[in-house]
Design a protein around this nucleic acid. Sequence first.
DNA 1: CCAAAAGTGTTAAGGGTACACCCATGC
DNA 2: GCATGGGTGTACCCTTAACACTTTTGG
Lengths: 233, 233
Amino acid sequence: MKKGKKYSYLYERPALAADTVIFGFDGETLKVVLTQRKKDPFKSRWALPGGFVFMDETTEQAAKRLLLEKAGLKNVFIEQLYTFSDMDRDPRERIVSVAYYALVNARQYEISAGRDTLKTEWFSLQDMPKLAFDHSKIIKLAAERLKGKVSYQPVGFELLNEKFTLPQLQALYEAILETPIDKRNFRKKILSTGLLLALDEKEKNVAHKAAQYYSFDKKMYKELGKKGFHFEL
Amino acid sequence: MKKGKKYSYLYERPALAADTVIFGFDGETLKVVLTQRKKDPFKSRWALPGGFVFMDETTEQAAKRLLLEKAGLKNVFIEQLYTFSDMDRDPRERIVSVAYYALVNARQYEISAGRDTLKTEWFSLQDMPKLAFDHSKIIKLAAERLKGKVSYQPVGFELLNEKFTLPQLQALYEAILETPIDKRNFRKKILSTGLLLALDEKEKNVAHKAAQYYSFDKKMYKELGKKGFHFEL
DNA sequence: CCAAAAGTGTTAAGGGTACACCCATGC
DNA sequence: GCATGGGTGTACCCTTAACACTTTTGG
């Protein structure tokens, strides 16, 4: 190993960014937040909310900060997805991006446009515009990850209101897994986890039998020690 | 958002490194490759093989290059694990590390000490020395990831010879999952995947009934389209 | 012939899947 | 009273889990 080009890392380093796929659920389809770019490159194209990582923050802190700056979101579930480092990700220069995904309640939060963005909006996963950079690739990977995650951890609750009905929860699972689920089997299975708490409250003003509200029993989840959850199909 | 400190990323960037957890199996326990550091910080401490990412390579390419340089390994299964970015990971300066894990056949490859290392050796996961940086944390995460992975993808074969016996394969699963497995149930399940090809060759020179050799049917695996594998307990 | 590990089948229990009708509510 | 979606139970099948003896080989 010689000195010279190979040691250029001492002087030259890739820039480090964080981008986040924010998932939300509107009752029908899975959505993600996109921001429209105000500047080149890819001026006016839609992109994931993201930006550079500062020297005094971890990549996760950066992702959270950018969530707030670019979409007005705070205190959300967030988890690291993957690090993208292809040489030509960004036309300007080399940028390595640590991608995260976040789960938020799309109805509870107002999404607000932030710095460097023209607009910030929810887009259905089924119906996405052409994206900047390699962001479609990132979203695709995030959707797959979520599919896997939902089948062994009760993350779905992050996407719903604190109280929700079983039909709502089922619709969410169907949207994430992209497959229809049998109503009775779904109820049996999800209730058998013991993680749902039936509230004594029902839907109102619906032109059919009112659905029971439930909430997620976080205490029980901690007691179960995150074991013994398995949700196939 | 003001200019100033917050924009320091334009001038100052974290260094970017890649570290790899190399798993091997000696027939009894899971092992990982560690290298003893020749320089400060943590001079003479054991650490994961790793190093800086150059400007003309992806993090995965860097991990592969470092595998070759530091441990003499080539053409191995490698997959991204997680990106570590805590501020105080490295006492010198801020270094963000993209961690990978690799699966190699510990018997087939000779491990050789590389540049900047005193020695390079296999260590049993059960019996690890005190490590430099946050490398124990990385190894712990890698072991968990491998546990999960092995139950839905047939990765175990990367750790064995091309031909192997079912008792060998079972011992590997037991080592990874850290739990004993029933012999008959294991055979039934693993054979029912249709991914094993019985060779017409048996063990030799063993003081007991000779075990049948099998190989992994890669063609069949591709045909099955990576679906329908599920290995619980 | 002895030691040591490979190989083999059955049963019982639990979980998954498929499936159709009645109920509550608003209009 | 009608349309709409919520809520409920059962039967079959397949998978899992538990479990003990015979076979082959080298020494």
